[in-house]
């Protein structure tokens, strides 16, 4: 973990406990989650009690205290999506990646979340992959999507290694 990046975020907010949420958002953007070490640092610099930082980090769903995967799959579980078979996606992901909603796969490549409605009921069932909305999803489409992402990841890994060598 690179502490220097946190220092640059915190430098302009020192001694201002009311900027807590902004700071946490910035840290979440860098690491994709909130590391415990970073939160202690935040508490120290902003002058907010560490329990307050912990409470806020727990309160909002946008913050995660567990390390998250590189790719975020969000499944809509709203009424319309549910009726059109969204619960099957949970089984599909459970079979494919062996994780339940809210969990991250062992290799830290995928995190799966469920949300109650994304407001696109006419297009349901909706799956959001890294912020990109996919309409009229089926288990097959979802499987293909995951496979493609995995392959891309592999290619990137190989290319990355080439660059290093």
């Amino acid at each position: 973990m690179d502490i220097a990046q946190i220092d640059s975020i915190l430098s302009s907010h020192a001694g201002k406990p009311d900027r807590l949420v902004e700071v946490l958002q910035d840290i979440q953007d860098i690491y994709n989650y909130l590391p415990e070490k970073a939160l202690w640092k935040v508490s120290e610099t902003l002058g907010a009690p560490v329990i307050e930082v912990f409470r806020v980090a727990n309160f909002y769903k946008a913050f995660s205290l567990q390390q998250r995967g590189r790719h975020l799959i969000t499944l809509c579980m709203g009424t319309a999506c549910h009726v059109r078979g969204a619960p099957r996606f949970i089984d599909e992901i459970k079979g494919r990646l062996n994780i339940n909603p809210g969990e991250t796969s062992c290799d830290k490549s995928f995190t799966v979340e469920t949300v109650n409605c994304v407001g696109a009921c006419a297009l349901g069932p909706v799956v959001i992959m890294n912020g990109e909305y996919h309409d009229h999803m089926t288990s097959l489409k979802l499987r293909k999507m995951i496979e493609e992402t995995e392959e891309k990841d592999k290619e990137n890994a190989i290319n990355g290694e080439d660059k290093h060598s």
Partner: peptide, 22 residues
Amino acid sequence: NALGFVGRGKDRHVALPFHNRP
């Protein structure tokens, strides 16, 4: 400030920071 309410709704509970005694 070693204790606080954590979680929301029915999951609200009293907890220590990061569930360890500081």
